[in-house]
Design a protein around this nucleic acid. Structure first.
Length: 422
RNA sequence: GGAGGGGUGGCCGAGUGGUUUAAGGCGCUGGUCUUGAAAACCAGUGAACGAAAGUUCCGUGAGUUCGAAUCUCACCUCCUCCGCCA
């Protein structure tokens, strides 16, 4: 959420920032509402001051046994007026808030201008795609032998789900454990295992609500939502909290399944593991002071990259252009892994700095050491990594002519030393 | 699912209609004292809006009243017991 004060003080800057995203949002109406609300608030407070004074006086007079009918009658009207004003103020502030909640974050100055994925900028490549001297198979073709069962998942639930069996299930679990261990033991993250359903407030903090409700699975029973990423529950760990400065930075890593409706992406990646309604992901989340948040983003990115380096999977990193970034992000990098069957790099992680956008929505602040007012901190997160797509990359990049798949060395300790599946 | 009891500042805890501008304690910060420390003593210690005066916040939301932490209703949540259950 943007700061209303920024709108009041520099509406030009905000408008330009949003234009960079390709969004032309009129803000003058919002400013008018804000002005009116503040005017009424002043008026209401004046009446409240009066009410408090006279009410105290009534108390004293009554103690002395003096008649207070005149004052009581007068205050009855004042109270009525306050009630009306407060009702209007509440309406206005709800309206203002709703509008603010629907405005995306302003891109950081280093973010390239652009409308869509075509304008993203590649900044780094690592590893070389392997040359195969036989026709490469897709992970769907390879998957059968290692226990990927799409047919049965579809019978059990429907399209967009997968059933892992045998060594496939084992490989998935190995990936989760490998990634968690790396981030916990070597990168200094605290492992958390959060709820997989969240309430409205939590989904609003991260920016999934109110604008993107159609992307979420709703659990009707309790007004809960299945999480689309661990970012949602983990970021909300500190919602409505004021953290002592000495506690910062906070690094968390969480493994969770993720549930997404994928509304609006019909027809893309309909087959295979790339796009599923449910997939597993290991997610990195940081709470940091504003000053260092962009260095923290670089570090976060390197932590996610490290997973691919150790798995020896070729990848590249791109900076997302303003138009291709997520709603809440101020700057995002995508890591894309090489997919041999498609002959291109595909997204496997997004690392983002949200600055204080989410912190403001969720009121997540820290208390400065030397005293002073609480300050909104900066939140960041990134996949480290998406398990399903990592599975795809391993199956395809490590495939052998006979249809078997070599297990990357770092995963073997998690698989009883096995070197190859099936 | 049934029955009962709670939710007050960083923490503990008093407060059942009007000097409560939320007592008191602990913790924390600063000071005095001390060779240094501890102890003792003194002072200061929540948040939002506002230039300020001030207004608001005692789980949340409605209501009663001139006036609500305090009374009424609904909801949320925690605890105890019973039942069911991984």
């Amino acid at each position: 959420m943007l700061d209303v004060r920024l709108l009041r003080e520099d509406i030009q800057k905000v408008t330009e920032g949003l234009k960079k995203r390709g969004q032309d949002i009129g803000l003058t109406g919002l400013l008018k509402l804000d002005e009116e609300m503040r005017r009424l608030l002043k008026e209401s407070e004046g009446f409240k001051y009066k009410r408090n004074m006279v009410s105290d006086k009534i108390g004293e007079l009554k103690k002395k046994g003096v008649d207070t009918d005149k004052e009581t009658f007068e205050m009855r009207e004042v109270s009525q007026r306050i009630k009306e004003l407060d009702a209007r103020i509440k309406e206005l502030s709800e309206d203002i808030n709703n509008r603010l909640l629907n405005i995306p974050n302003i891109p950081h100055s280093s973010v390239p201008v652009g409308r869509s994925a075509g304008d993203n900028v590649e900044i780094k490549k690592w590893g070389n795609p392997h040359k195969f001297n036989f026709p490469v198979k897709s992970h769907m073709e390879l998957g059968d032998a290692v226990g990927l069962d799409f047919q049965r998942a579809s019978k059990i639930t429907g399209a967009g789900f997968v059933l892992y069996k045998g060594m496939g299930a084992r490989l998935e679990r190995a990936l989760i454990n490998f990634m968690l261990d790396l981030h916990v033991k070597e990168h200094g993250y605290l492992e958390v295992s959060p709820p997989f359903m969240v309430n409205r407030e939590s989904a609003t903090t991260t920016g999934n609500l109110p604008k993107f409700e159609e992307d979420l699975f709703k659990v009707d029973d309790g007004n809960y939502y299945l999480i689309p990423t661990a970012e949602v529950p983990v970021t909300n760990m500190h919602r409505d909290e004021i953290i002592p400065e000495v506690m910062l930075p906070l690094y968390y890593v969480a493994y969770t399944p993720c549930f997404r409706k994928e509304a609006g992406s019909w027809g893309q990646d309909t087959k295979g593991l790339i796009r599923q309604h449910q997939f597993d992901k290991v997610e990195l989340v940081k709470f940091v002071k504003p000053e260092g948040s962009y260095e923290e983003l670089e570090k976060l990115l390197s932590h996610a990259e490290e997973v691919l380096k150790r798995l020896e999977l070729p990848y590249r990193v791109i900076t997302l252009c303003a138009g291709d970034m997520g709603f809440s992000s101020a700057k995002s990098y995508d890591i894309e892994v090489w997919i041999p069957s498609q002959g291109k790099y595909r997204e496997i992680s997004t690392c983002s700095n949200f600055e204080d956008f989410q912190a403001r929505r969720g009121s997540i602040r820290y208390k400065p050491k030397g005293g002073g007012k609480p300050v909104f901190l900066h939140t960041l997160n990134g996949s480290g990594l998406a398990i399903g797509r990592t599975m795809v990359a391993i199956l395809e990049n490590y495939q052998q002519e006979d249809g078997s798949v070599i297990i990357p060395e770092v995963l073997r300790p998690y698989m009883d030393g096995k070197e190859r599946i099936p």
